[in-house]
Design a protein around this nucleic acid. Structure first.
Lengths: 341, 341
DNA sequence: GTTTTTTTGATTTACGTACATCAAAATTGG
DNA sequence: CCAATTTTGATGTACGTAAATCAAAAAAAC
C-alpha cells in the first residue's frame, strides 16, 4: 500500500495539520520540523495522490489557446482538435478557451498575453510570433509562474516551458533529401512554393531545405521562392506560370499551405512531365494528390497530437509534475501513398 | 458546474441510494424508476467522476504484459518501456506484471492465458502468436469480460479490443516504394533479410514489399529471402555471402532484427558499391549506420508509444470509457538522417 | 517570570463516488 | 385484507487530500 499523509504524520511524529502545511508550503512551520516531515516523505517514498488532491481542491485547469486568425486548413484543423479537447474537458477537469489574434502582429499578441495574465489561467498555449517584445512578455509571465507552451511555431531563446510542434529545419532537410533521392541522377531546377517568408516556420523549412540541397545535391538548383501567401489562387497562378516559363523544373517543394492551387496547376501543366513533388500537411486535397501520383510525399505534423500534448504538458506544469519527454515529442510524419492513415 | 449524483437524485426525484444502484447496476430497482434515473442522467449530461470513483473504490488496474522470450534489441526496448511504466504505476494506479513465454509456441501462450485469467487481471497486453488455438482462447476471455490488447504483433480476426502496433503490410509497401524511388532508373536485384518467415510481422512486411515491388518497380528483382533468425552473426554471414556471389545486388531490405550483422557485412563488402539499404527499427547501430550513409532509411515503431498506448487502452476498457482512436494509432516512423530524434 | 508571538495539534468539513445497513414504503401473492 | 416480498429512502463510513478553526504548547521577547 502506498503511504498517505497519515503515514507521514506518524513517521515524522507530527500532526496531520503540520504535514499539510509542509506539503502545501503554508507558513507557520519551524525549519527543523519541516525537515523532519520532508525526511519522512522521502523515506516512505510518499507521492501525493493527485486525483484525491484535485478532488479536494475542486481543481480545474483553466487553459487558454492563443491562435492566429489565419484561415488555412491547418489552422482549421488545430481549431477542430481544440474543440474535441473541449468536449473532453469534463473528464479532464480542463476549462479551455481560445483567443484569436491577428497573424504576425507582435503588439497584438503581447496585448493579449498581458490581458490574459490578469485572468489567472493555469496555462497558456500559443502559436508564437517570433519577435523580441513577445519573447520579453513570455519570459516575464513564465518568471511570474505562468506555465506557457508554444504550439506549432516556437519562440526559441525564450523561457517557455515546452514547444509542441515539429522541428521545421529538420522538416526542410528531410524534404530536400527525399526530393534529391527521388530524383536520383536527374539534373534540373527545383521550384519552392512558400506561404510567406515572414513566417518563421516557413523560413526554417526553407533554411533546412536549401542547406541539404546545396551540400548534397549540387545538380539541383533552387529557383527563387514563390510566395503564395497560403492562398490557393495565388499558388495556382505562381506555379502555373513557373512551369510554363521554365522547362527545366524537375521538382517542387511546397512548404506552406494553399496546396489546392498547386495541385491544380500540376494537373494542368505537368501531366506530361515527370515532376517530383513534396508538400506539407495532409489534407483531403494533398491526400488525393498523393494517391493519384501528383504528389510523391507529404510531410505532416499531427495537429491532434500537438493540441493534446500541449494540454498534457500544461496540466503537468501546473501541478509541478514531470512530463514524459518521449511522449511529448511531436514527430514529423512522412506519408507515401502506402502508409496513409 | 458539472452535475453530481446528488443532482441526478434530485432531478429524478429519487434518493441517492437509488441513483447509486442504477449507476453500478445493482439489483433492486424497478424498471420505471431505473428509466427515470437514466433519463435524468442523460438530460443533465452526467459524467461519472472517474477519479473520485477510483478513490472511493481504492481501485488499481492489475495489468499483465505477455512477451515472447526472444532476445533482440526491439524486445529489450519493449521491456525497458514496461519498466518505465512500472515506475509510473503509483501515479497511474496500475499494477503491471510481465510474463515471458517461449516465442512461437501457441500452446505455451494458451496455457499462460488460461493461468492468468484465474488471477483476474483487469487487462492483458500480449505479443500475439498467430495460431487458431490462441485466437480461440483470446475470444473466449474477451467474451468473459477481460480486456485484451495485442502488442507489436496482432491477432487478426480475433475479438481483441485493440492492436497497439504498426500496420506491417503498409510498412513493407513503404519500404518498397522508398527503395524503388531511391534507386530510380537503376536495374538490379534486391536482397531481403528477414528474421524468420514463421513470424507474422515479417511475413506481412515481405508481403507488402513484394506486392509494391512487383507492381511498380519491375526492373528490380527480389532475391530469395535470407532468414537470419534475428541473429547478427547469421545475418552477417548470409549478407556477406550474398553480396560476394551476386554483383547485381543494388538494394537491401532488412525487415527483421540482427542489423548489427548486416551493417558489418555492408561495411566489409560494399564500400565500393552504391547500395541502397532500408532497415527496420532504430537502434544505436542502425542510427549510426544511417548517419554514416550505410543505411538510407529506417522504418521504426516506437516501443514506448506502443506500451503507453496499450496501458491507456486497457485502463479505458476496464472502466468502459471511450478511447481517442487517433491518439492510439501507432504510426510507422520513417527516419532519414535528417529527422532523427 | 510574565507576556507576546510563533509553532503545533486536534478536529471538522468538504470533494464525488462506492458500498453497506436498516428501516420504511410500495407492490405483489394468496 | 394480511402477509410476504420487492423496492426505495435515509444514513453513515470510507477513499486521500485540502483547508479552515481554535486551542494548546513552545519559543522568543521583554
Amino acid at each position: 500500500m502506498r503511504p498517505t499523509v497519515h503515514d507521514i504524520a506518524a513517521a515524522a511524529g507530527v500532526s496531520l495539520a503540520t504535514v499539510d502545511r509542509v506539503l502545501n508550503q503554508r507558513p507557520g512551520v519551524r525549519h527543523v520540523t519541516r525537515e523532519k516531515v520532508e525526511t519522512a516523505i522521502r523515506e516512505l517514498g510518499y507521492i501525493r495522490d493527485v486525483a484525491a488532491a484535485n478532488l479536494a481542491k475542486g481543481r480545474t485547469y483553466p487553459l487558454v489557446f492563443i491562435l492566429p486568425a489565419s484561415d488555412n486548413s491547418f489552422m482549421h484543423g488545430v481549431n477542430g482538435e481544440i474543440r474535441q479537447a473541449i468536449l473532453r474537458s469534463a473528464a479532464e477537469r480542463t476549462d479551455i478557451r481560445t483567443v484569436e489574434v491577428p497573424a504576425f502582429d507582435p503588439a497584438a499578441l503581447v496585448a493579449v498575453l498581458e490581458e490574459l495574465s490578469r485572468g489567472k489561467p493555469c496555462g497558456v498555449a500559443m502559436v508564437a510570433t517570433d519577435a523580441p517584445e513577445v519573447r520579453a512578455t513570455v519570459d516575464r509571465l513564465v518568471r511570474a509562474g505562468f506555465p506557457i507552451v508554444t504550439l506549432v511555431s516556437d519562440l526559441t531563446g525564450s523561457l517557455r516551458h515546452h514547444y509542441a510542434g515539429v522541428d521545421n529545419i529538420a522538416a526542410g532537410r528531410t524534404a530536400a533529401r527525399l526530393l534529391g533521392r527521388f530524383l536520383g541522377p536527374r539534373k534540373g531546377e527545383i521550384a519552392v512554393l512558400a506561404g510567406s517568408m515572414l513566417v518563421r516556420d516557413h523560413r526554417e523549412r526553407l533554411e533546412g531545405f536549401t542547406a541539404v540541397m546545396a551540400a548534397e545535391f549540387p545538380d539541383l538548383a533552387i529557383l527563387p521562392v514563390l510566395e503564395g501567401r497560403d492562398d490557393p489562387e495565388i499558388a495556382h497562378m505562381l506555379v502555373a506560370d513557373a512551369l510554363a516559363r521554365n522547362a527545366g523544373i524537375v521538382g517542387v517543394y511546397s512548404l506552406g499551405a494553399g496546396n489546392r492551387g498547386l495541385i491544380r496547376a500540376l494537373k494542368e501543366k505537368a501531366v506530361d512531365r515527370t515532376l517530383t513533388v513534396i508538400a506539407h500537411e495532409l489534407t483531403s486535397h494533398t491526400r488525393a494528390a498523393l494517391i493519384d501520383n501528383t504528389i510523391d510525399a507529404i510531410l505532416n505534423q499531427d495537429a491532434g497530437h500537438e493540441v493534446r500534448s500541449a494540454i498534457r504538458v500544461l496540466k503537468a506544469k501546473a501541478d509541478g509534475l514531470p512530463v514524459i519527454d518521449a511522449q511529448e515529442r511531436i514527430r514529423l510524419d512522412i506519408f507515401l501513398k502506402d502508409n496513409l492513415p
